[in-house]
Measured scan of single mutants.
Amino acid sequence: KTYTFRVRIVDEETGEEKEIEVTAKSEEEAKKAAEELKKKYPNLKVELE
């Protein structure tokens, strides 16, 4: 079973919002993916929905 999570990304500089879908095998995995995004884009606000 896989879970699909919507991750909302807000670029703090431009105020631009993007939504991406993360497919993960567990909620834990999705959280890790969101953390990776935060590391990659430090000025983005990442929200897991």
Rank of each mutant, 00 (worst) to 15 (best):
E36W: 10
E17K: 06
V22L: 13
I9V: 08
K32F: 10
I20R: 01
E29G: 05
A34Q: 07
E49W: 03
E17F: 13
D11C: 12
T14G: 02
E47Q: 10
L44F: 12
R8L: 08
P42W: 03
E36Y: 09
A24Q: 01
S26G: 04
V46P: 03
E49T: 12
S26R: 01
E27C: 15
D11T: 02
R6M: 14
E28N: 07
V22S: 01
A24Y: 11
R6K: 14
L44Q: 06
E19P: 01
L44R: 07
L44P: 02
K31G: 05
K38G: 06
P42N: 04
T2E: 14
E13N: 11
K45F: 10
A34W: 15
I20L: 07
K45R: 13
E12H: 11
P42S: 06
V22K: 00
T14C: 04
D11E: 02
N43L: 07
K18Y: 15
Y41W: 09
R8S: 05
I20G: 00
K32W: 12
I20F: 12
K38M: 14
S26C: 07
V46T: 03
K40P: 01
K40E: 07
E12I: 13
A34E: 07
E49S: 13
E27D: 03
E16Y: 09
E16V: 08
V22P: 00
V46C: 11
A33H: 10
T4E: 04
E35T: 07
E17D: 05
R8A: 03
K25L: 10
E49H: 13
F5I: 14
V7Y: 09
E35R: 07
E36F: 10
E19K: 06
E19R: 11
V7T: 01
E21L: 15
K45A: 05
K25C: 14
V46E: 03
T14S: 06
N43I: 04
Y41L: 03
L48W: 15
A30N: 00
E13Y: 07
T2P: 06
I9M: 08
E13T: 12
K25F: 14
T4Y: 11
K18W: 15
E17N: 05
K32Q: 12
E47G: 05
Y41E: 02
K18T: 14
V10S: 05
E47P: 04
E17G: 04
L44W: 13
E28C: 11
K32I: 10
E13Q: 11
K31T: 08
K31S: 07
T23I: 13
E17P: 03
E49I: 15
E29F: 03
K18D: 05
F5P: 00
P42H: 04
A30M: 08
Y41R: 03
I20K: 00
E35P: 00
T2A: 06
V46R: 03
K25D: 12
V7Q: 00
Y41S: 02
S26Y: 02
K25M: 12
E47A: 08
K18G: 04
K25E: 12
N43S: 07
T14P: 00
K45I: 12
K32N: 10
E27P: 09
V7S: 00
L48R: 05
E21V: 14
F5M: 05
N43Q: 07
E29K: 02
E49N: 09
F5Y: 10
E29P: 00
K45M: 07
K32P: 00
G15W: 02
P42Q: 04
K32R: 11
E27N: 06
T4H: 11
E21K: 07
E36Q: 10
Y41T: 03
E16C: 14
K39F: 07
G15S: 02
V46Y: 06
L44C: 14
L44V: 07
F5L: 08
K40S: 06
E36I: 09
V10T: 13
R8M: 06
K38L: 11
K39H: 10
V46I: 13
I9A: 02
R6D: 01
Y3G: 05
E21D: 05
K40I: 11
Y3A: 04
E29S: 04
Y3C: 14
P42E: 03
K1S: 06
E27S: 06
K38I: 12
A33C: 15
D11S: 03
A33N: 04
N43V: 04
